[in-house]
Design a protein around this nucleic acid. Sequence first.
DNA 1: TTGGCTATAATGTATATACATAATGATCGG
DNA 2: CCGATCATTATGTATATACATTATAGCCAA
Lengths: 241, 241
Amino acid sequence: MTIVKDATLHQRILGDIEARIVSGEWPPGHRIPFEVDLAADYNCSRMTANKVLTQLAKSGLIERRKKSGSFVAQPRAQSAVLAIAEIEAEVQSLRLAYSHSVHARTKRRANADDKQRLELSEAASVLDITSIHHAASAPFCLEERLISLATVPEAEAETFAKISPGTWLLKQVPWSAAENRISAVSADASVAGLLDIEKGTACLVIERRTWSPAGPVTSVRLTYPGDRHALVARFAPGGEG
Amino acid sequence: MTIVKDATLHQRILGDIEARIVSGEWPPGHRIPFEVDLAADYNCSRMTANKVLTQLAKSGLIERRKKSGSFVAQPRAQSAVLAIAEIEAEVQSLRLAYSHSVHARTKRRANADDKQRLELSEAASVLDITSIHHAASAPFCLEERLISLATVPEAEAETFAKISPGTWLLKQVPWSAAENRISAVSADASVAGLLDIEKGTACLVIERRTWSPAGPVTSVRLTYPGDRHALVARFAPGGEG
DNA sequence: TTGGCTATAATGTATATACATAATGATCGG
DNA sequence: CCGATCATTATGTATATACATTATAGCCAA
């Protein structure tokens, strides 16, 4: 049984249309009622219908064309929302004790590889931190991070003994853009040693680059033992789900 | 230089606020102007300001509390949008010739494993298809798919010789919910043989389960050689970007 | 037939207004 | 001094209206 919390008109219209699209009653390409007709059907103003259809268009469920009307969209690329949590939160949601240790920490002038990873044009100082996240005292994830000291000079004074670089940066750099690259690699001897796994074990690798308006912030490579970990992304036509 | 297409008032207000949040001028926790004040600043109606703030709240950049006002949100889990394209489109975007071959195709009553993968409660018929996607005649991706014939009986008549199961299903089942699970595994002998890679090579695995209102549709396991492939997900505070 | 003009139909954006809702803060009685 | 009540304030939702924008269709003339 579904409990229907007495919904707003907006939600009701939205839900009705979504249901018809998702059920296949209105297949892709089908023209859905004009705003004025919807307004008449629900005995509401056109603005209300408009807002619903605008939202459906933004979520990709319908396409709107002036003069022609609104049409159910073709479901194309699965666009799923991937929530990449902070590692500490992730570990704690597994009800395991979290800890973090810094394995190496060096400051240097950016070399060619650093420049490419951070998309730096000139030589600048970077901080290179290798650390390990533990869940219940077992290695959970290897973090290899580069921080651009030109953008975040405060990082130089931080040892990251008490707070992980990711969490620290989240507090330092309020909101930023990021690019995540997900791939699979075999653990080499060094990675295997740090994560306490067999050499050659498949690992899930997330490489994330982060920018603020002031410039490149950080580039991080997170290596998870593949047999212990998976990322989950959900997709639902309406949006939340 | 940035070309500014003469934007609507809505976009201008939205952009201004986003810029101030992203730049750190308005840090997390900062109270942003009330709707009426924003309306006064931009010489517009409260409705226009309201729509902008509502959108910012939906995108997670701000939090709104009645009576108190609207506040810049704390950036929490990186929520990135992961676009999982159709394999054929993906290959063609690499400017490579696409082809697809079915390696095995069997119909059977669902066994225990099938039931778990499709979340079936009763025994029902399923179609099990193993196929390989090629890019420029080299194996690109291994697809192991289970289709619930109770939900999609039409699949039984289809050989999938000319059209891949994914593409076919996309046409059959208009809109549906999905769960994607991304992990890393080492190729076993069988997978290595089919993908023409060394045994033990790390592979990126996407397991996707799809539901329609009529029930479970399909469960597919896509295995990509990890050294040739990566998924990219982007995150930008505003939304599109 | 063809090219271009125009009317029209649908969406896109914005306004002014109204009332509902919810949380805060102040007032007042015990 | 505590606690209930009530006014205030900011957001939430919806309406009616206006005008802009744009793609389509139809008309008319060269």
